[in-house]
């Protein structure tokens, strides 16, 4: 088990290197750089732009820029924003808590609503509950975040005045963004819970449990669910990545501070070090969460052993 975990952790390094290379290449290949983004509309002369580009090292060839970036990274420093000069690590540290708060709240909503919804739908298969919960799930999967967010703002904020339309602060500010972000997760988790539960609900061991006279509640929760949860956990892990990605849009729509807003701003400004760092952080979080999910399989299903 531990060998497995250590091996998986070691794999993180080449994965992160790959991510760094891909992000760097993508940003490099996009025509225009931070100087173009900064000096657009400003009347800067070609000489001034060239001078600034040289000062930022943006006139260097690809491999030089990439190697320099790796060296900065290896020194444990994430560098400074090209545009604002703020240390990247400070910026991330200041934005991370808001994004974690949002992502965890959304994940909690997705699990706490998605799993029971899926269970009920599976147990009452074919009933109106099943049909309507799956319609909700379909809508949730199909509806883009930004659109749902705007609808929520119009209804709950403008019409009813229950929640603020924008900002970062206490619980009141968190509800709408978290529900918006968690909604698609509810949908996916409900669908997966339903289908995996249906797979096991007619299995021999469940029939055995039932015929032993166990309470239906025990049969479902202890016997069926435990086996159905493996695939649900996989989806939860994947959802975490989707939520991190979704937070980019949701934070922008709700005017929240956070990594998402930071990333969008950095991309708009072609601020390479900042884009690199935020994307790599998201990738790292995704890799680690999926490792956690893989490890949790063995806890849920004793037949699974890692070596």
């Amino acid at each position: 088990m531990w060998t497995y975990i250590v091996r998986r952790l070691l794999i993180v390094f080449p994965v992160m290197l790959g991510v760094a290379f891909m992000v760097f290449s993508a940003m490099y290949l996009i025509p225009g750089d931070a100087v173009d983004a900064m000096l657009r509309d400003t009347g800067a002369t070609a000489e001034a732009m060239a001078r600034l580009r040289a000062q930022m090292g943006l006139d260097q060839p690809f491999h030089v820029q990439f190697l320099r970036f790796l060296m900065v990274l290896a020194s444990g420093d994430l560098g400074r924003s090209l545009v604002t000069g703020r240390p990247v690590a400070d910026q991330i540290a200041s934005q991370l808590p808001a994004t974690i708060e949002l992502t965890l709240a959304a994940l909690a909503i997705a699990i706490l609503i998605g799993v029971p919804l899926g269970v009920v739908a599976a147990l009452r298969r074919g009933s109106w509950i099943d049909t309507s919960s799956m319609i909700v799930a379909l809508v949730g999967v199909s509806m883009p975040n930004f659109w749902l967010g705007l609808l929520f703002i119009l209804f709950f904020s403008l019409q009813l005045g229950w929640f603020p339309a924008s900002g970062t602060g206490g619980l009141r500010y968190l509800v709408l963004p978290a529900v918006t972000l968690g909604f698609s997760g509810v949908a996916i988790i409900a669908r997966i819970t339903r289908s995996s539960l249906l797979e096991v609900i007619n299995a021999d061991y469940v029939r055995t449990a039932r015929s032993k006279g166990l309470k239906p509640r025990t049969v479902v929760l202890k016997h069926a669910m435990r086996n159905a949860m493996a695939s649900v956990m996989t989806v939860v892990g994947l959802q975490f990545g989707a939520l991190l990605g979704g937070s980019v849009v949701v934070e922008t729509v709700f005017g929240r501070q956070g990594l998402g807003s930071l990333t969008v701003g950095a991309i708009q400004r072609s601020d390479l070090p900042l884009v690199q760092a935020t994307v790599m952080l998201a990738a790292l979080a995704f890799v680690l969460v999926n490792l956690l999910v893989d490890v949790s399989y063995s806890l849920l299903d004793p037949r699974i052993r890692y070596a």
Binding site: F146, I153, L158, P164, A165, S166, V253, G255, S261
Partner: peptide, 15 residues
């Protein structure tokens, strides 16, 4: 206060 999304900024003002 930074509110990037036009629609949210407008609703925030109306609210």
């Amino acid at each position: 206060r930074t509110i990037a999304e036009d629609g949210s900024r407008v609703v925030s003002l109306r609210n």
